[in-house]
Design a protein around this nucleic acid. Sequence first.
DNA 1: CGTAATTTTGACGAAATTCAACAGTTGTGG
DNA 2: CCACAACTGTTGAATTTCGTCAAAATTACG
Lengths: 240, 240
Amino acid sequence: MLTVQIADLADLLEARPLTPDGFARTFDLPVRERSIPKQHDLLLPGAEPEVAHLLLAGHACRYRMLRDGRRQITAILVPGDLCDLGAILASRADYAVNTLTRCTVGEIPIARLSARDSPDLAAALGRRLRRDEAVAREWIVSLGRRVGIERMAHLLCELRWRLATVGLVTDDSFEMRITQNDFADALGLTSVHVNRVLKYLRDSQLIHLKSGRLTLLDRPRLERLAQFDPAYLEIWSDAL
Amino acid sequence: MLTVQIADLADLLEARPLTPDGFARTFDLPVRERSIPKQHDLLLPGAEPEVAHLLLAGHACRYRMLRDGRRQITAILVPGDLCDLGAILASRADYAVNTLTRCTVGEIPIARLSARDSPDLAAALGRRLRRDEAVAREWIVSLGRRVGIERMAHLLCELRWRLATVGLVTDDSFEMRITQNDFADALGLTSVHVNRVLKYLRDSQLIHLKSGRLTLLDRPRLERLAQFDPAYLEIWSDAL
DNA sequence: CGTAATTTTGACGAAATTCAACAGTTGTGG
DNA sequence: CCACAACTGTTGAATTTCGTCAAAATTACG
């Protein structure tokens, strides 16, 4: 089971490692911890969310369905992420949120996230939103202009970076129990093709994936292959 | 030449039609109007923007380049859009902005966009950012799970909707001087394939495209083909 | 330990790309 | 206003990437 390892809360909003306890303490927020099974929807399109879900352990995703059953994952969520950020700020969801593995989430009543109560909190939420948007931009680049192998390589580099940020990576190795079918829906490929891509990366000695743990065997080479540049993940200042 | 037709400024930030004059008046902002040639970069990655570019006429885009020359457009900008919104709020750009046609832009010193001066303005910028993010999410769905024809159909539906919002559409017809090569870089296709897709849509009596003007001949059918649902463009409330 | 879910593999087909050539349009300077 | 050059659009043929279908092997889980 993935666990956030952290210590202080403002840190969470800064994407530095932190614990749920730290979060609650710093902003004096009530965080009710809940365990959610795999493949459970936390939010549906059109919903007007009452609580924010802070992901504490496990992996989740934002996604949209087409009428004929095609699914596209628009974001992969890792511990420390606010699953329904955009929906909370707009008071209405235009996407769904689903758990990809068993998860632990912290529920926070949205009334307690009011900008009126804490300008610092509002600013922190704004930074998170901009980071989500930067990640989405990079996914557009991947889906539009990278071939399958590069696309997978880029996603793995992104996940390693984001997980490292919350202290969940040791020696370029981290827990990763996402299904190949879920990877496919994130990467715009089929699960069959994802399987072949992973085989290629394995055969090339770039990754090692076994029993829910992924290791990047040669991160420099993988990042070169993916043309991965973490600049887009490092934008944290507040101009205005 | 495209022209914003509008009247009041708060309207711009609400994505309702408005004029540059209205904009300047309402928030008492200095807007210096400038004419920019086609294919001109307004912003480069890594830059720390000094002025915000409010697009007044023409079409522009945000894009990222890969080292080997592949280009992906991550957003198409129409009159009323703030070209460099994310970069302004973060005080640093992680993408480039380029004019796709000759454009008129209004330059606004970013110092005048400070949240401290006007909470209303800050809230409006936040709404714009969330709308940009919702559009990006939908692009991810298109790039990942729609085939070429659907992808093009969806983009045309989106552009019609956004242009209608600023009063630039009559009878599902609007000015569109974007190159097939630029469409390709937005849709993750090659220009050759874009040409074939457009031919299919023309042959199917779905669109008419001649001398820089695009007409959606059968919008209901086009929207069904694209599975276009404007819900994602209609989120304008402010929860917190 | 048995059932269901997931991963893996092969053969074949569809969508999109590449390469190449040519036609049409637009913009520019004389 | 014309002539030319440069850019943009159009089309065909061969190729690549990725998808579909199907089945077997492996793993996860109650």
